[in-house]
């Protein structure tokens, strides 16, 4: 399936649209029904984080989502180094067929506990609420949820913003593949 690209404004209402679109494209790509809930939540977390960051720093700038089925043709903008793009990496000598979601924001990046894929810690009641936010939790909690839900994740702060890549295997998966610890 050809890649789908979506651009949203830094509006909370647009996060829901992004979730709906990502879930629809994932379903069409052949993602197992049991995994669709995880994609919906992970994409929502990534977009919520991006929207909050844009509202604080650059509210007029758009946020970009790339929805990529690695079994289909790839656009030039999504053909990345395999090391930083797990969906494109071969698996056992065969191209891995994966569904990948890339959320790219343009807000100034700050180091997160979840950058480079490190595991995080449970939130405490002492966490602060970000300026203008409604959450009583650190923004890193959203990234912790993404790390917990996606099969493979990379969070890359860069000069232009932050790129969150999440991917899931396409096709049927065993319960062990999708079951969450705890």
């Amino acid at each position: 399936m050809a890649p789908v690209q979506l651009t949203i404004s830094a509006l909370p209402a647009h996060v829901r649209m992004a979730r709906l679109m990502a879930t629809a494209v994932a379903r069409r790509a052949g993602i197992a029904e049991s995994t669709l809930d995880e994609i919906r939540l992970a994409v929502g977390e990534a977009c919520s984080r991006a929207v909050e960051a844009h509202r604080a720093h650059c509210p007029s700038q758009p946020i970009q989502l790339d929805l990529i089925d690695s079994a289909g043709p790839r656009s030039s903008s999504t053909a990345q180094d395999e090391r930083s793009n797990p969906a494109a990496a071969p698996h056992n000598g065969h191209p891995a067929h994966r569904f990948e979601v890339v959320v790219s924001d343009k807000a100034p990046a700050k180091e997160s506990a979840y950058a480079n894929g490190s595991s995080g810690v449970a939130p405490s009641l002492g966490e602060h609420t970000p300026p203008g936010g409604v959450s009583g939790l650190s923004p890193d909690v959203g990234l912790a949820v993404i790390v917990g839900l996606a099969d493979e994740v990379s969070i890359e702060p860069c000069a232009e913003g932050t790129v969150v890549r999440m991917s899931w295997p396409l096709g049927p998966t065993s319960p062990e593949d999708t079951r969450l610890a705890g």
Binding site: R19, R40, L41, G44, E45, S48, P123, L125, E127, T129, G133, V134, S135, G136, L137, V141, G142, V145
Partner: peptide, 16 residues
């Protein structure tokens, strides 16, 4: 039908 970390934050805020 759907709950994300923003919703969790509100519940934690209520608990506090």
């Amino acid at each position: 039908e759907f709950l994300d970390s923003t919703g969790l934050g509100v519940l934690v805020g209520g608990l506090k």
